[in-house]
Design a binder for these strands. Structure first.
Lengths: 132, 132
DNA sequence: GTAAATGCAAATTGTTTGCTTACTG
DNA sequence: CAGTAAGCAAACAATTTGCATTTAC
C-alpha cells in the first residue's frame, strides 16, 4: 500500500510527460513511445508503460481505459468527458455542457467510488458524405 | 456490411445462450466456457468467443466492455447500468433509479451514437470491516 | 450439397515482469 | 552509495485467426 515512494526525475519520465502534455490527441502507449523515441532513441516501450503508470499514480495524467479499446492517455487532468470514434478509434475531449452525473454513495450494496461516462459515435473525419 | 447472414442453430450456440441467460453474474468468456463445457465437453474456447460475437451482433446478449477489465457478457438485453467492484472484478446490475442520460445528437463534430455509463466501487463481499 | 460452424493450435495484441546495469538524489 | 529506474527480452492474458473437418438446413 505504499503509494508515495520517492520518485526520480529521469529524462525519460520528463520527456514522456512533456510530450503528452503537448498533445490533445490522447495517444496510446505505443504512439507516445514512437514520439518520445525521437528525442530519446534508446528508450524502451516497457519504460514508457512503467512511467505512464507512476505518472498516473501521482495524478499527473489520466488513464483513459475506454470500453473495448486500447488504453489512451491524457495530460489534461481537469475532469472532463470523452467521446470516441467507433470507426477510427480517435478520442476527443468533450468540454461542452453535459456535466458528469454525481453518483450516489451506495448502490446495490456497493460502496460507490465513482462513475465513468463515455460517448461514442463517428468523428468528423469518418463521417461519410459530410464535407467538413 | 452483410450483417444478416444465415445462422445455424447449433447445440453449442444454444447452450452458450441458455447458460448465459441462467446467470446474473455477467461471466467472462472463460467462465462461460468452463460452464458450457460441463454440458458439451468437446467445445473449444474459440467457439465460445465466436458465438458470443454473433449472439452479440444479433442482439441476443450485451457485451460489457468495461474500463480496463476483461469483457463480460450479459444475457439481459434490457437497457440497464452496471457497477463493477474494483477489488474483485465482480459486476452487478444497477436496476435502481439513475436513468442512463440521453446523449445529444452531435458533440464536438461527432455524430453521437450513444454513451456508456458505468459505476465502480467496492462490493459487499470486499468491503472491509462491514458485516453483511 | 453447400455454406456455416466446429475443434484445435498457432498467431496477435496490449501490457507486465524479471533481471542486470545505469544513474539520481 | 542506496535504491529507483532503465533497457531488453521473455512472459502473460485475452482474444482472434487459419485450416481441415463436421454438420445444419
Amino acid at each position: 500500500m505504499d503509494t508515495t515512494r520517492q520518485r526520480r526525475n529521469t529524462p525519460q519520465r520528463r520527456v514522456i510527460l512533456e510530450e503528452l502534455q503537448g498533445l490533445t490527441s490522447h495517444p496510446t502507449a505505443a504512439e507516445l513511445f514512437s514520439l518520445v523515441r525521437q528525442k530519446l532513441p534508446r528508450i524502451s516501450l516497457g519504460t514508457v508503460y512503467r512511467n505512464l503508470e507512476v505518472l498516473h499514480q501521482d495524478g499527473q495524467l489520466i488513464k483513459l481505459e475506454l470500453a473495448g479499446a486500447e488504453t489512451r492517455f491524457d495530460g489534461n487532468t481537469t475532469p472532463h468527458l470523452h467521446i470516441r470514434c467507433t470507426a477510427c478509434g480517435a478520442v476527443r475531449d468533450v468540454m461542452s455542457a453535459t456535466p458528469p452525473p454525481e453518483p450516489p454513495i451506495e448502490l446495490e450494496g456497493f460502496e460507490v467510488h465513482g462513475c465513468r461516462t463515455e460517448f461514442f459515435g463517428i468523428c468528423p473525419d469518418c463521417r461519410p458524405s459530410v464535407r467538413h
